[in-house]
């Protein structure tokens, strides 16, 4: 097995979701693993050495184009004769990976939550039907592209770090390859996004109104968490759509998900049921959220959240 892992550059190195892909690739026992980075600074790749890969190809690019990135990655995979491509199933990965698969005549498996080698063949499993079922799949093609759900695989440093050698890969691009261009990125400044957070505190209809969300925000501050919301409160205009967790919002897998005043409709569970630890605060002890919770407090959010925030603050020092 010869694996190419897409390494997405971040402000200070490589995105954690890409490093998770590196660890997943190493766990498969591949003969060769090569990193490929499109755009960013070549020096960003150095951190990958700590995670056990030393051979990295870099294509400099000043303007991001998902189509150009897909063409470049596909050409690199061909030039290396690799059979397996692994990318993170984040916004950029989900956009470009299906194109890479079509270009390579490869099977594409989206949103993998596990990868394993079974009698010499790579098998992946992934949730379907909003997480109500899970399928095991494999490809019938020579080449395969896997997109891994972020924050499900763990990024582990290698026991002995290696020194990274970055080589430049120059793809053959035509004008057609740059027909989609990112002109601008608008960051939600000073606000942690639910897709990037280790801990999420979400509020639902039990908060009774937008003016009470400070209770959720305060608990989030004490936990260093992002603020999330249920569909009901987003539809009611209390919170922005970017915070919505669930089937029509974002799918998240944080280390801890705290659901406050959220009953736990199946559409909400679809977006958060792969969280590692789930905590629920709800005054209705029959609420479905308690069926998926590791820890629950049956009580009124107005009474419980301030006390919880205070006690957590003692532990976290925030």
């Amino acid at each position: 097995m010869k694996i190419i892992v897409l390494l997405e550059p971040s402000a200070n190195g490589i995105k954690r979701s890409s490093l998770e892909c590196v660890t997943a690739a190493r766990n498969l026992g591949a003969s060769t693993i090569i990193g490929y980075m499109y755009g960013g600074e070549a020096s960003s790749a150095n951190i990958a050495g700590e995670y056990g890969i030393n051979d990295i190809a870099h294509t400099p690019s000043s303007e991001y184009s998902s189509t150009a990135a897909a063409t470049s990655l596909a050409q690199f995979v061909k030039s290396e004769g690799a059979d397996t491509v692994i990318v993170a199933a984040n916004a950029a990965g989900k956009e470009m990976a299906p194109r890479v698969a079509v270009k390579l005549g490869a099977g594409y498996i989206a949103d993998c939550v596990s990868l394993s080698v079974q009698s010499g063949n790579l098998e992946a499993s992934r949730p379907v039907y909003a997480g109500k079922a899970k399928i095991t799949v494999s490809v019938t093609t020579q080449t395969a592209v896997y997109a891994l759900r972020p924050n499900v695989f763990t990024a582990r440093k290698a026991e002995t770090p290696t020194t990274v050698t970055v080589r430049t890969f120059t793809p053959q691009l035509t004008a057609n390859d740059t027909r989609v261009k990112v002109k601008n990125i608008v960051r939600n400044e000073g606000k942690l996004d639910v897709l990037e957070a280790d801990i999420i505190v979400s509020g639902g209809r039990g908060l009774k109104g937008p003016e009470n969300f400070h209770l959720v925000e305060n608990l989030a501050v004490k936990l260093g968490a992002a603020v999330g919301a249920s569909r009901a409160v987003v539809d009611a205009g209390w919170r922005p759509h970017g915070e919505q967790v669930g089937q029509t919002g974002k799918t998240v897998s944080p280390n801890m998900y705290v659901a406050c005043g959220i009953s736990g409709a199946v559409q909400h569970l679809a977006g958060m049921s792969s969280s590692k630890v789930i905590v629920a605060v709800n005054k209705d002890k029959e609420a479905p959220i308690f069926k998926v919770a590791d820890y629950g407090i049956v009580g009124d959010v107005f009474d419980v959240l301030p006390k919880l925030a205070e006690k957590i603050s003692v532990v976290t020092g925030k």
């Binding site: 079922a133 899970k134 629950g296």
Partner: peptide, 17 residues
């Protein structure tokens, strides 16, 4: 290009405290 080998219902292993 992709075949399903099997489907199962996820086992929820929650602490339930």
């Amino acid at each position: 290009r992709v075949i399903t080998k099997g489907m199962e219902l996820p086992q929820t292993q929650r602490r339930g405290i």
